[in-house]
Simulated assay, not measured.
Amino acid sequence: MFSFVLMILMAEDITNDTGKSIEKGDTVSVNYVGKLEDGTIFDTSVKEAAMEAGIYNQMRDYKPLTFTVGAGQMIKGFDEGVIGMRAGEEKTLEIPPEEAYGERSEELTRELPIEAVDFTPEVGMRLATDTGLTGTITEVSESNFVVDFNHELAGKTLIFLVGIVSVEESKE
């Protein structure tokens, strides 16, 4: 039921131009719903889907996502998954970790002494380094804490329901 309602909501924003198929270098606008394998929605461009999934953020502008195909603006599986689609077309992309945020790496977790910081570490707290790396505190003991710098979606297969809103041909 949810997918059916979602497809209708996405279809309302999709033009019926089924002309040009998407190629590398084209600029496309898409509506999408990103899910994990268990069906949990983690991101969407559709306001109603965000509200129904309990992830609605009133500070966010829910509108189609626009990007240039092949320019490295998107994860590899999403970027390559829209090639060949046309405006008005919908497709489900199943993207394995190696074409998304990679596998989880233990090398990206760090154990640090509590005395090295001027705050009280708590599980779930997000930290950023001077180099722009962000991580989440996953464990806290009396003397140390662990920060995981893996992307929160690392190691996960991602499933996207994608609807192509528009295609703008590359100017090259």
Rank of each mutant, 00 (worst) to 15 (best):
V162Q: 02
M74G: 05
M1K: 13
T68V: 15
N57S: 04
A116T: 15
D17E: 15
F78D: 06
E122S: 13
K76D: 08
V28D: 10
T109E: 04
G54H: 02
E103S: 10
L161E: 15
A128F: 02
G70S: 07
I159A: 00
V165M: 01
E142F: 00
G34P: 04
L112H: 06
G155C: 04
E172N: 03
E99Q: 14
K24W: 10
G163H: 01
L112S: 10
F160H: 12
F67E: 08
M10G: 03
V140K: 04
Y56I: 06
G25I: 10
N31I: 09
D148W: 01
Q73E: 15
V162T: 13
T40Y: 07
T66H: 05
A49G: 08
T68Y: 12
L112R: 11
G84V: 09
D130V: 06
V5E: 08
L93H: 06
T92G: 00
V147N: 01
D118K: 04
Y32I: 06
E99P: 03
D13Q: 09
L36S: 05
L133C: 05
K20P: 03
T131W: 00
G132V: 08
S3N: 08
D17A: 13
L65F: 12
E142P: 05
L108F: 11
R110T: 14
G155S: 11
D13C: 01
E169C: 02
K76L: 08
V82Q: 05
E172Y: 02
A154C: 13
M85L: 12
M7K: 09
E142T: 15
G19T: 15
G34A: 13
K20G: 06
R86W: 00
I164L: 09
